[in-house]
Nucleic acid binder design. Structure first.
Lengths: 240, 240
DNA sequence: CCGGCGCCGTTACACGCCGTTACAAGGTTG
DNA sequence: CAACCTTGTAACGGCGTGTAACGGCGCCGG
């Protein structure tokens, strides 16, 4: 990455705003917080974000209105964040020029993944002809994981069926390779909740994932156990 | 396509008026906005619409009155738009010559679907009066879905019969590919209503759609199940 | 107005995911 | 070496999902 993409987060709830900013910064984005539409307008006079993440329900000018205004003049891509179940707003949102939307409450990883996807789409002028996906693939040791289509191919190119939990788990690893990921982190990533005491859910899910990756826990090629620490994804991961 | 049907939208609220016009134009109709009955009369001296979409509650002459006047002289078909749940208006509306009735707030898609239905009914030559797929055809894995003609072609170009519900469901997917769509979202999209507890309607509809797409639920190429989340359309979709 | 037909919502049941539990196999500590 | 920890995983069962079957309802042709 040449330079960190700049993302504006427009959200009135201070807690969610701070959460979103910290999530993005943790993933090495450059994030700026705006508490309302006016603050965004002010920011836009000084810098042009690569992406605007916009809450729909806000005091003052609401997100749909801001979205309409900005996309009408060909501004940066916009991701709308809407309260859960507000489907009509969602549909209209896309029709008035938003590039994506995210239902609230959102999973931390969803926010980051979708931001990445939009930025990639916006920056790539080349139409990639990758099989069955809009673009992004994670490759490791001949395997490839398609996060958009939620599919995994083994080194022979044969599809391997992953359950929802296994897919989320593997996603966490390929997006954070060569780092020790604690069980707490993995629990939060895959389920969005904290582990209860004596919770073995991660261990069992991991055991099942290892089997599908044909990884031997005695001498693992992919997922190494770090005693008292968590797990570590050993292969080098390419983003293609 | 012979020529885009011409639709007049009579509605005093500028936001709803703009929304309706933009929805119709997106579907290749030719739409004209009128902010009141007088503007409609003015328009009628110049062009005859194929359909008039008419708000009931308006300052000045109200929609019922306009409807009575126009249908009495055998004018174009009329769709009334009224405040929600106003059954009396509904009955009166249909008795004084309206062809259909749309409760407000309406689903964006519902407006378009009903407009299409009326035009189809009104014109003896069914398909030719509707805007053809000109700009809108969704292709995925060799299949193609024509939203205007409501038809699906398999990779060999053979037509596959879809029921209304199946078509709406597939529409939702091709317009939101590679995104997890919740059952709530799909219910709202296809029926415009909320799911009741233990509602399996979406699951069953989806199962039927999968069969027509010849998609194996055990290792789906098209529609993947995301447990506790919803469904995801995996293929890359092109708009042609 | 009647009867057939097709759509689709409901129901019922089968099946597979995954969280829990239990136990085994190391490792660690004293 | 004993006691205790951590981790791997088989087994079990609750529950979410797939889908066959049934039947109500609306549509359409007599």
């Amino acid at each position: 990455m040449t330079e960190a993409p700049f993302i504006a987060v427009v959200e009135d709830d201070p807690e969610i705003r701070a959460l979103a900013v910290s999530l993005l910064e943790r993933e090495n984005f450059d994030a700026a917080a705006c508490e309302n539409a006016a603050a965004l307008d002010d920011l836009l006079t000084r810098r042009t974000p690569d992406l605007i993440i916009l809450d729909v329900m806000m005091p003052g000018e609401d997100g749909l209105s801001v979205c309409r205004r900005i996309s009408a003049q060909g501004g940066p891509p916009i991701m709308l964040v809407t309260a859960k179940g507000d489907d009509i707003d969602r549909i209209i949102g896309l029709e008035i020029g938003a590039d994506d939307y995210l239902p609230k409450p959102f999973h931390p990883r969803e926010l980051v993944a979708r931001a990445r996807a939009i930025l990639r789409r916006a920056s790539s002028t080349t139409a990639s002809a990758l099989p069955s996906s809009g673009g992004h693939l994670f490759r490791f040791e001949g395997w490839s994981l398609d996060p958009a289509a939620r599919g995994l191919l083994d080194p022979d190119g044969l599809p391997v069926e992953l359950s929802a939990g296994e897919f989320e788990l593997l996603s966490a690893f390929v997006q954070h390779p060569q780092r020790v990921l604690s069980r707490d982190f993995l629990m939060d990533w895959t389920k969005g909740r904290d582990a209860t005491p004596f919770d073995r859910a991660v261990d069992v899910a991991l055991s099942r994932l290892r089997r599908k990756l044909r990884d031997d826990p005695q001498s693992p090629k992919f997922i190494r156990t770090v005693r008292n620490g968590g797990y570590l994804f050993a292969p080098r991961v390419e983003r293609a």
